[in-house]
């Protein structure tokens, strides 16, 4: 892969190698935003302003950024309960995400879904699903609609390593292959299901990639902490999907810096493991990449500062926002807007 820095930065549309500078800055900003927004979510929990549970993607941001950067408007994302990063990656405002976590009226679903169910149809975020595996078949269905109607959008489905051991994963892969559906399955292998190492509960070393051949798919493993690698791999998967060649299954190797959920101090990790992975922090890797291509520290700092401003403003807006109004308790159970099940 070409990585030699291009010296001449005088033209506006700088092409670093196969990836433009603009694209790289987009992916950098996205990762910084996810990192800061999720750290803020954690701080707000410590202030008791976020209730319930939440599952952070700290350390896994390169996947969300790389995939989203390869998506076109109109493409659809199907996420898990660990969905903050993927939701932000599609352009959903931080305020709406934090507001949802805080149960405020400005939240994405006005507090009716919470952290595990972030959804923004207008941004193509078709839901965050908290029953392991459920959304793989659902993504197939959305892809089937695109195929049937001759529409060009692709459905992307994110899930963890642990999800490869549930039946719906296998049903969905077979289904997507036999119907040649425009769907991309992205496995974020962070080495753990909840608390149990994936290696202790899985018949193969690479939980997704080593199953690919069972469905006639190529074995694809990428460095999930390098947004560029993810981006390049996704471009090819999207090309395949859009040209009628069917689904892809991509295993991204990564690591979560925090516990599984907020309740988890992650004591089960062997000593030194987290530290080793922090050396491969996606943001560290990406800053080195930007430096390599001549982006200045000042430019990076400016992006980080701007993101901080955005996250600060969103936080203040959420703190000032009213709690969700109680009259929505009974709305939207049925399509008529209400909840009546009898006359």
């Amino acid at each position: 892969m070409a990585k030699s820095p291009k010296q001449d930065r005088s033209v506006t549309a700088v092409v670093n190698d196969d990836i433009s500078e603009a694209k790289r800055l987009e992916m950098f900003r996205a990762q910084v935003l996810m990192r800061q927004a999720e750290q803020r979510a954690f701080d707000l929990f410590l202030e008791n302003l976020v209730k319930g549970t939440s599952h952070l993607s700290l350390g896994q941001e390169a996947i969300a950024a790389g995939v989203a950067a390869a998506m076109e408007p109109g493409d659809l994302s199907f996420c898990t309960y660990r969905g903050h990063a993927h939701t932000l990656a599609r352009g959903v405002p931080v305020e709406k995400v934090l507001g949802e976590l805080m149960g405020r009226d400005n939240g994405l679903m006005r507090g009716k879904g919470g952290s595990m169910h972030l959804t923004s149809v207008e941004h193509g975020v078709m839901g965050s699903y908290a029953i392991i595996g459920a959304h793989l078949p659902i993504a197939c269905g959305a892809a089937w609609r695109a195929q049937y109607k001759g529409q060009s959008d692709v459905s992307v489905c994110f899930f963890g390593d642990g999800t490869t051991n549930i039946g719906a994963f296998h049903e969905a892969l077979n289904f997507a292959v036999i119907w040649k559906l425009p769907v991309v399955f992205v496995c974020e292998n962070n080495l753990y299901m909840e608390y149990t190492p994936i290696s202790e509960v899985t018949a193969v070393e690479h939980p997704a990639a080593d199953r690919a051949s069972a469905y006639g798919l190529p074995r694809i493993i990428v460095d999930g902490n390098d947004a560029d690698e993810v981006y390049r791999t996704m471009l090819e998967a999207f090309r395949k999907a859009r040209s009628g060649e069917g689904p892809s299954l991509i295993e991204c190797l990564t690591y979560r810096h925090s516990g599984h959920s907020r309740a988890d101090p992650a004591k089960y990790r062997p000593e030194g493991e987290l530290e080793r992975w922090k050396l491969r922090d996606p943001l560290t890797i990406y800053k080195a990449r930007l430096r390599e291509f001549g982006v200045s520290e000042a430019d990076m700092k400016a992006i980080e500062d701007d993101v901080k401003r955005v996250v600060d403003e969103a936080t203040e807006a959420c703190k000032a926002a009213p709690f969700t109004s109680t009259d929505i308790l009974f709305t939207d159970v049925y399509a008529d807007g209400g909840w009546a099940w009898r006359n």
Partner: peptide, 24 residues
């Protein structure tokens, strides 16, 4: 429009849902 599926009840209902959510 009339499609035989594998013996995959989760895929059948999940696919129906994804299709329904997006316009079918």
């Amino acid at each position: 429009r009339v499609r035989d599926t594998p013996i995959s009840e989760q895929a059948i209902l999940g696919a129906a849902m994804g299709a329904a959510m997006t316009g079918l």
